[in-house]
């Protein structure tokens, strides 16, 4: 500690001893060093943060009720009055972006938590108790992987015969999306089960639940977090897909519904670039951000990847 504080660099900054210099060396400099080693995590978090800032500030300074149909003149190019322009049905596209982005993220988060939650529970039950329980879970997972959940969801949605709300869609996507995390997490648990510290804990009389919650789960958290980010991205992709083929809720200004209206009214052919560009940029930022976070977390949870070429 004292060594780093007296480096010429630190003296140059006039931060030797106490105060900011102390704080910099203790807290910020490890973060900075980690950021240099793991740029994907930082860039990914930065992208998501910028999106959050856009939405947050947008809600404060803009009238988001303009996302409703016929609240503005139609088909206006971006101007001072309508910075993102308006669409064929008279929505203010800035309001649509501000309202829609968090809705889409909400679908992804609900679906992600539901699928990872179910998947983790199934994985632990299967891998820890083995035997016929494992066999049952594995069979369900194998069949589930072979059946495209999204298509089953389309059928269910058609048969329900009414529009799904954002929360319902997130929940439904989670219900069909848990099999993949269940499979990968189960594989991790199986490996960890044989680890010496788990064996030791079991031999010293810890109960099954104790071993799971005290020994295994804490060590799997980085991996589960990385899976969660992946599941969120997958669910967002699926939700936009469902909405783009016309199975979303027509009154919600989500990113997927905006894409749907774009296709429906052929905005590209009409030359209305301001209509399709914002949702497209938002979706790219979301996917790129989540992808970078996920690979950044991978690096954290799987040190093998650290030996980059």
């Amino acid at each position: 500690m004292t060594q780093t504080a007296t480096t010429p660099d630190a003296i140059d900054r006039g931060q030797v001893g106490g105060g900011w210099g102390q704080f910099y060396d203790d807290r910020l400099s490890p973060i900075k060093r980690y950021a240099v080693r793991n740029p994907s995590l930082i860039v990914g978090l930065g992208l998501m943060l910028s999106l959050a800032l856009f939405v947050g500030i947008g809600h404060l300074v803009w009238d988001t009720e303009l996302y409703r149909v016929l609240s503005t003149p139609t088909r206006l190019a971006p101007s001072f009055e309508y910075p993102f322009g308006t669409d064929t049905q008279g929505r203010d596209l800035l309001a649509v972006s501000i309202r829609g982005t968090p809705l889409t993220l909400r679908i992804g988060l609900i679906a992600g938590f539901v699928s990872i939650g179910l998947g983790t529970v199934a994985a632990f039950i299967a891998a820890y108790y083995r035997g016929w329980v494992d066999y049952g879970v594995r069979s369900v997972v194998d069949v589930g992987l072979a059946m495209p959940g999204l298509l089953i969801l389309i059928l269910v949605r058609i048969n329900i015969g009414r529009e799904l709300t954002v929360d319902e869609m997130g929940f439904a996507l989670g219900m069909v999306g848990w099999v993949f995390p269940a499979r990968t997490i189960r594989a991790q648990v199986l490996v960890m089960r044989e680890a010496a510290y788990v064996e030791l804990s079991r031999l010293s009389g810890t109960s099954g639940m104790g071993v799971i919650f005290k020994e295994m789960l804490p060590n799997l958290i980085p991996y589960i977090t990385a899976s969660l980010v992946g599941a969120v991205a997958g669910a967002i992709l699926a939700s936009i897909g469902l909405e783009a083929i016309g199975l979303g809720r027509f009154s919600d200004p989500t990113l997927g519904m905006t894409i749907f209206w774009n296709i429906q009214f052929s905005s590209i052919i009409l030359g209305m670039w301001w209509w399709w560009l914002p949702p497209l940029v938002a979706i790219v930022i979301v996917f790129l951000g989540l992808f970078l976070i996920s690979s950044g977390l991978d690096e954290w949870s799987n040190p093998r990847l650290r030996k980059r070429v």
Binding site: L237, I240, G241, A244, I259, N262, I268, I269, G271, W273, W276, L280, I283, V284, F287, L288, F291
Partner: peptide
């Protein structure tokens, strides 16, 4: 490559339509 992998196919499709079919007119819409 990484960026392209993160972009859903249909969005890439929309960009391609805009650039090569709508703006440049090289290919059908």
């Amino acid at each position: 490559l990484l960026t392209l992998a993160a972009v859903p196919q249909y969005l890439l499709g929309m960009i391609l339509i805009f650039v090569f079919a709508f703006s440049l007119g090289w290919l059908p819409l």
